[in-house]
Amino acid sequence: MAEDDGFEQRLRQARARQGMDPPPGRKGALPASGWGIGFRAGVEVVSALIVGVAAGWFLDRWLGTWPWLFLLFFVFGSVAGVMNVYRLFSPRGAARKQD
């Protein structure tokens, strides 16, 4: 047949190039060295604590309930920090198998 000059292959390539077929795997992961991981885990915990403490402090100042919301959001911030670190180490694909 005259059409059979690698048309299917070229079509597949063109489709892959235009992104009509999803690529098999996701590439480009975060670099993982020991220091890098440790530093990132620390940053995640500290930033969650900062946000928790700041949210509690501002809510307290607004509602006049010092220091109860501050203490509560300090705990929320700590838990969120642990959650952040947990998400850092758990494989990212596992949580969204359903998509």
Binding site: R40, V43, S47, A48, V51, V79, G81, M83
Partner: peptide, 21 residues
């Protein structure tokens, strides 16, 4: 009552951790 505030704090901590890093 526990998960929602924790998730909100975790979501809000994204720009903070991004900038601090």
């Amino acid at each position: 009552p526990i998960i929602i505030p924790v998730e909100i704090v975790s979501y809000l901590s994204r720009p903070v951790s991004l900038s601090i890093r």
